[in-house]
Design a protein around this nucleic acid. Structure first.
Lengths: 162, 162
DNA sequence: ATAATAAAGTCAGGGATAGTCAAAAATTTT
DNA sequence: AAAATTTTTGACTATCCCTGACTTTATTAT
């Protein structure tokens, strides 16, 4: 029998129907498939991961939702974000970060102002901790920035700045 | 169900219509939305906080009111930057950082995309170190971002609205 | 002054969502 | 069949929104 996770994956993809984003209620979906709500999280984690080109956003409480955003993999056959994240790795130095940001700028995926911000956030001066750990920390910040930058490209409202 | 709080927030912002202050009756507003009066307090606390640059003033009893004042730092350039850096101080938590970014957005000093980047760089998730030091680190990153944001503004390119 | 009335504030709690994690179950690989 | 891997579930947690009971303050009437 087709695994439940696969069915749910297919169902969601069909729901998206080419659109690059969709919002759904976790519990409703779980009910539709008569499974535990956390099963949905599993599907999201394994089938709609960053590596596969998706970004998940969610909110709890009354009016809660789970939003799935598919990043368009345009600029390169492979998923560009995925590749960039790979290049960031677990640590990266200031020059490496700058180079990467510069490349985004060259590709016209971000503006000069945005590039300036990304560079500022990953500059040595911004990360005030013992030198030894800076590169690791910078990698975390840069990853977060990259994911956000790609979210921006989807034209949506990005995530709440709340 | 659409969140009542969001509707009320929107309603108030529309009422203000660019003005920097407004006075309203808590009970009337509650009645308009058919909700408990305390709901209004909730909206004020979560959407019109100090962090977002609002000050709430009120009076009880006959002729009571709630006044919402949007702080518009009248200083610009250097002074505003100074003030904001002061607010960041040596440490700031995630909510504080978000509120400040939200305010820059409201003041139209940065674009939504830029706000998203600033929020991403100062999110808890981006700073992968022991919790205890996060706020200090975040302050460093945010300071760096602010300085860069103001550098952008002086460049006078206006902001790309994309 | 005191009492009555008319606001607004506070806070704890409940309901509605979603997330996490570890253990059990199922499936696949060796 | 044993081991390894993936899937599924359930118990517990976290967050957000909304309400209601009770409190505080200001004004007005007696």
């Amino acid at each position: 029998m087709a695994r439940l996770s696969d069915s749910i994956e297919r169902f969601i993809i069909e729901l998206m129907d080419g659109a690059d984003r969709i919002e759904l209620r976790r519990n409703e979906l779980a009910q539709h498939f008569s499974c535990a709500p956390s099963q949905i999280n599993y599907v999201l984690a394994t089938r709609f991961s960053i590596e596969r080109g998706y970004i998940i956003d969610s909110r709890r409480g009354e009016g809660g939702y789970v939003r799935i955003v598919q990043m368009r993999p345009d600029c390169s056959g492979e998923n560009l974000l995925c590749e960039l994240l790979g290049r960031v790795g677990t640590q990266i130095n200031e020059d490496g970060a700058r180079g990467l940001v510069h490349q985004l700028l060259q590709l016209e995926l971000i503006t000069e102002r945005e590039a300036g911000l990304m560079a500022a956030a990953t500059a040595d001066a911004a990360l005030q901790i013992p030198v030894s750990a800076k590169d690791v920390l910078r990698a975390g910040v840069l990853r977060s920035l990259l994911i956000q930058a790609f979210r921006n490209m989807e034209g949506g409202e990005g995530h709440d700045v709340r």
